[in-house]
Amino acid sequence: PDDEWKERLREAEEKNNWKLFEELARKAGVSEEKIEEWKRRWS
Protein backbone atom coordinates (compact mmCIF):
# COMPACT_ATOMS: atom_id res chain seq x y z
CA PRO A 1 0.00 0.00 0.00
CA ASP A 2 2.92 2.32 0.72
CA ASP A 3 4.17 2.11 -2.84
CA GLU A 4 0.70 2.80 -4.18
CA TRP A 5 0.35 6.13 -2.43
CA LYS A 6 3.86 7.12 -3.46
CA GLU A 7 2.89 6.39 -7.05
CA ARG A 8 -0.25 8.50 -6.72
CA LEU A 9 1.74 11.32 -5.15
CA ARG A 10 4.12 11.18 -8.09
CA GLU A 11 1.19 11.45 -10.50
CA ALA A 12 -0.23 14.42 -8.61
CA GLU A 13 3.19 16.04 -8.64
CA GLU A 14 3.58 15.50 -12.39
CA LYS A 15 0.24 17.16 -13.01
CA ASN A 16 1.23 19.83 -10.51
CA ASN A 17 -2.05 19.11 -8.75
CA TRP A 18 -1.31 20.40 -5.28
CA LYS A 19 -4.83 19.85 -3.93
CA LEU A 20 -4.72 16.17 -4.85
CA PHE A 21 -1.18 15.84 -3.55
CA GLU A 22 -2.15 17.36 -0.20
CA GLU A 23 -5.23 15.15 0.07
CA LEU A 24 -3.25 11.99 -0.68
CA ALA A 25 -0.50 12.96 1.73
CA ARG A 26 -3.04 13.50 4.52
CA LYS A 27 -4.73 10.17 3.82
CA ALA A 28 -1.33 8.53 3.92
CA GLY A 29 -0.80 9.99 7.38
CA VAL A 30 1.86 12.50 6.43
CA SER A 31 2.23 15.17 9.11
CA GLU A 32 1.03 18.72 8.46
CA GLU A 33 4.59 19.82 9.15
CA LYS A 34 5.89 17.68 6.33
CA ILE A 35 3.13 18.89 4.00
CA GLU A 36 4.00 22.53 4.74
CA GLU A 37 7.64 21.75 4.08
CA TRP A 38 6.74 20.24 0.71
CA LYS A 39 4.59 23.25 -0.12
CA ARG A 40 7.47 25.61 0.53
CA ARG A 41 9.86 23.50 -1.50
CA TRP A 42 7.34 23.22 -4.28
CA SER A 43 6.34 26.84 -4.78
Rank of each mutant, 00 (worst) to 15 (best):
E22T: 04
F21W: 12
F21N: 00
S43V: 13
A28R: 06
R8M: 12
E32H: 04
E11H: 08
W5D: 05
E4I: 13
W5R: 04
R10Y: 07
K27T: 05
W5M: 07
W18N: 01
K19M: 10
E32P: 08
L24R: 04
R8V: 12
E7S: 09
S31V: 02
R41T: 08
W38A: 12
N16V: 06
E11W: 10
E11Y: 05
K15M: 12
S31T: 06
A28K: 04
S31N: 05
V30T: 01
E13W: 15
R26F: 03
R41S: 12
E14S: 12
A28W: 09
P1V: 13
R40G: 12
D3P: 11
E13C: 15
K19C: 14
A28V: 05
E7H: 08
R26C: 04
K34C: 15
N17Y: 07
G29R: 01
P1Q: 12
E4M: 10
K15Q: 12
E33Q: 09
A25G: 00
K15R: 08
A25M: 13
E13K: 15
E32M: 06
R26P: 00
K19I: 09
W18L: 04
A25W: 06
E14D: 10
N17E: 08
G29D: 01
E22I: 08
L24F: 08
E7N: 10
E7W: 05
E4W: 15
K15W: 05
E4P: 08
A25Y: 02
E22N: 01
K27N: 08
E14F: 14
K39G: 02
N17C: 15
L20V: 11
A28D: 01
E14H: 14
N17H: 09
R10K: 12
S31K: 03
L20F: 11
E22P: 00
W5F: 06
E32R: 06
E14P: 04
E33C: 09
I35S: 00
L20E: 14
I35M: 02
W42C: 14
K34T: 14
K39I: 09
E36V: 03
R41V: 10
E37I: 02
E11F: 06
F21T: 01
W42E: 01
I35Q: 00
E23V: 04
E23I: 07
R8L: 14
S31L: 03
N16P: 04
W38I: 14
W18D: 01
N16K: 11
N17I: 12
A12Y: 11
L24D: 02
E11T: 08
E33R: 05
G29P: 00
K6M: 14
S31Q: 03
P1G: 11
D2R: 08
W5V: 06
K6R: 12
W38N: 02
S31F: 01
E22W: 08
R41Q: 15
A12G: 04
E36K: 06
D3R: 09
S31H: 02
E32Y: 04
E7A: 11
A28P: 00
E11A: 10
A28Y: 09
